[in-house]
């Protein structure tokens, strides 16, 4: 024993013992790493999975989600039958997906192709979503796209129609001389078309009046009356009582939508970039007649 620990002198038994110990330790570490590292093929199901099908994991988090969706239960609340049913369904799905890949289902089936395209697009975009834009990013985007961040614009306008140009001209003259609306309408036989009433957003007034008449209305200030507009159904006068054109929204008011739009634009940019890269990487040959 004292020889064994006399490190200054050589000792065969000690050498072999240490060698053996080293070997066992090394094997132990290697084995441990092999059986526990994520993504390795083993006979053990990793704790984050509920099954493994040809070494592809069936994840526990999906299993939980399925139990919640199907039965509204957590894993311990679920009955053994519920757990078995969900597990079997998930294993079946994995087996069929794997078989689908073997059979190259995406080669022919349009639904599988569309799903794959969409999944790849989403994955590209998803990578960018965890990033929160800086205030500087947002303010720059807000300024560049100012036209998107405007208030709606509203108007209160009445659309009156006369049978003849003379009646319309008479009414216009009276109204501009501040005659009361009701008596003027009665006197010149004007009718309210009812195309617009109450306060309306610009988009609604445009739909109700039509593009041409809306363009006229948009230029009227409160109290203005349009020139007579000759239309198939008679001669119209637009009487404007309030016109609030769109104004820029403050950044603080628009901020939430700026974040959404910024993210969308960022995602679209990434998608385009990845597409260019993939296209460059691909070996695409085009038939002679289509070149």
């Amino acid at each position: 024993m004292s020889d064994f620990l006399a490190f200054r002198s050589a000792n065969t038994a000690r050498s072999f013992t240490l060698l053996g110990l080293g070997a066992v330790l090394g094997l132990g570490i290697a084995g441990y790493a092999l059986f526990t590292a994520p993504g390795t093929s083993t006979l053990i199901v990793a704790p984050e999975d509920v099954a493994s099908v040809n070494q592809r994991p069936v994840s526990r988090i999906d299993f939980d989600a399925q139990l919640r969706t199907l039965y509204d239960v957590s894993p311990t609340e679920a009955t053994p039958e519920q757990r078995k049913h969900v597990l079997e369904a998930m294993i079946r799905e994995e087996i069929f997906v794997q078989r689908g890949i073997e059979l190259d289902a995406a080669g022919a089936d349009p639904a599988a192709r569309a799903a794959l395209v969409s999944a790849v697009e989403q994955q590209i975009v998803a990578e960018s979503q965890t990033k929160q834009p800086t205030p500087a990013d947002l303010e720059a985007f807000y300024r560049q796209n100012q036209a998107k961040y405007m208030s709606e614009g509203t108007m209160i306008v009445r659309d009156l129609v006369a049978a003849t140009p003379d009646q319309a001209a008479g009414a216009l003259q009276a109204l501009r001389a501040k005659a009361p609306l009701d008596t003027t309408m009665a006197k010149f036989g004007l009718k309210d078309t009812g195309r617009t009433k109450d306060e309306e957003y610009y988009f609604a007034a445009r739909i109700h009046l039509g593009d041409a008449d809306f363009a006229v209305a948009q230029k009227l200030a409160a109290g203005d009356i349009s020139e007579p507009l000759v239309r198939p159904d008679g001669v119209h006068l637009l009487v404007m009582s309030r016109n609030a054109p769109p104004v820029a929204l403050a950044f603080a008011v628009a901020q939430e939508r700026v974040v959404t739009d910024w993210r969308q634009a960022n995602g679209a940019r990434l998608l385009k970039g990845d597409e260019t890269f993939l296209r460059k990487r691909a070996n695409v040959l085009i038939a002679e007649d289509l070149r």
């Binding site: 939980d64 989600a65 919640r68 999944a119 697009e121 989403q122 998803a126 979503q129 957003y201």
Partner: peptide
Amino acid sequence: GDIEQIIAHGIRAANGKSRAFAIMPAYAT
């Protein structure tokens, strides 16, 4: 468990399992 599912798949995030059932409509459009 509910919170974990949200963290895993997100809300209106770019994946098929994300929660995205409804949006708040823009009534002035």
